[in-house]
């Protein structure tokens, strides 16, 4: 009885929130959530967490299932969404890679702006770290040492278009210094290179490092984000440390296939609004050291366009060949 009452209330609130248009639409088939990574990848885990939270809070009248479309970077997943043009039972989880791939790869023809924007969900902050026995206790120390021997210091990270490399390029041109970037495909290898003393600096996700920080194996010099994370309240942001460089925030959000009808978009707007207000969401965001940043579909559309511009400029400044 109680459950039905709550469901009824939820439906009522939902109807109020999004206006009369959305009462017209309710998914009737199982909802497909498309992710570009295989099972266990960052996006896959986010999608599975969302289905579990929606399930627990009885937010969806239909079953939600995660569909993995790995391969071709993000392109296999975005092409799949394009093939579902106008469909109302399919959504996808996008990340910054969905913008970067079409900007750099001539073969990746689907841009994020070609799809229907629904919501932005989170920003992912990052930490600038060194090994515990490193002589560097602040970003200033590191920059000063880099000035002394140009090209002698090393930073581990992902590929050339990754956020950590773009940030490095920005920092180097702002301070007139130079240090080396060593690419590793997996986070584990980047971390092993830092812990083994083979590189001097690493920019990493807070969730992969909390234990090593707590055990005193690595030290945090600064955090990258607009505000300090609650768990790292005594660590300055890069701007507070005196480095006001341009960077882009790693983000994740939800898109629909091209030409998704307005009433379906309104329905998913309501679903996201309810999801991001649950206590389970707050707990999930806190545990993974994310910043919750939900937007409505119209704002998301504007965000995606300005975000693409921002990334394009940064990639160009980092000396990369931009295709679109």
């Amino acid at each position: 009885m109680n459950k039905y009452l709550r469901l009824g209330c939820a439906a009522f609130v939902m109807a109020l929130a999004a206006g009369p248009a959305q009462a017209d639409f309710k998914p009737t088939r199982p909802l497909e959530i498309v992710v570009h990574g295989g099972p266990g990848s960052g996006n896959d885990l986010l999608a599975r967490a969302i289905t579990a939270m929606a399930d627990q809070a009885h937010l969806s009248p239909v079953r939600m299932q995660v569909v993995n479309k790995p391969g071709g970077g993000s392109t296999n997943a975005s092409s799949y969404l394009v093939s579902k043009k106008g469909d109302v039972n399919t959504i996808g989880i996008f990340t910054s890679v969905w913008i970067i791939d079409p900007l750099l790869q001539p073969e990746a023809t689907t841009r994020l702006t070609d799809l229907t924007p629904i919501a932005r969900l989170i920003f992912e902050p990052a930490l600038v770290t060194v090994r515990a026995d490193s002589p560097f206790h602040s970003v200033d120390d590191f920059i000063a040492a880099a000035k002394e021997k140009p090209g002698g210091l090393k930073q581990s990270g992902g590929n050339a278009s990754s956020r950590e490399n773009i940030l490095r390029q920005q920092l180097m041109s702002a301070t007139g210094t130079r240090w080396t970037f060593v690419s590793f495909p997996s986070g584990g290898e980047r971390l092993a290179a830092l812990l083994g003393g083979h590189v001097d600096l690493m920019i990493l996700d807070p969730s992969e490092a909390t234990e090593l920080i707590r055990a005193g194996k690595i030290r945090v010099l600064a955090q990258i984000g607009d505000e300090r994370l609650p768990d790292f309240a005594d660590i300055p942001t890069l701007a507070e440390a005196g480095y006001k460089v341009k960077t882009f925030s790693q983000t994740r959000g939800i898109v629909g296939p091209p030409n998704m009808p307005a009433e379906a978009v309104a329905y998913y707007d309501g679903l996201v609004a309810k999801l991001t207000e649950t206590p389970a969401w707050a707990k999930y965001v806190r545990e993974n050291q994310f910043v919750s940043a939900p937007t409505k579909s119209d704002e998301t559309g504007k965000f995606v366009i300005s975000y693409e511009d921002q990334i394009r400029t940064l990639l160009k400044e980092a000396g990369m060949k931009v295709e679109r």
Binding site: P70, G71, G72, G73, T75, N76, S79, I100, D101, L104, Q105, P106, E107, A108, T109, G158, N159, A160, S161, S183, P185, M320, K321
Partner: peptide, 20 residues
């Protein structure tokens, strides 16, 4: 596929399926 170091694609023959 996409080269790790330069983020450029190699030998994909215009097929996006081969990027990864």
């Amino acid at each position: 596929g996409i080269d790790l170091f330069t983020a450029q694609s190699r030998f994909v023959f215009g097929r996006s399926e081969l990027l990864g």
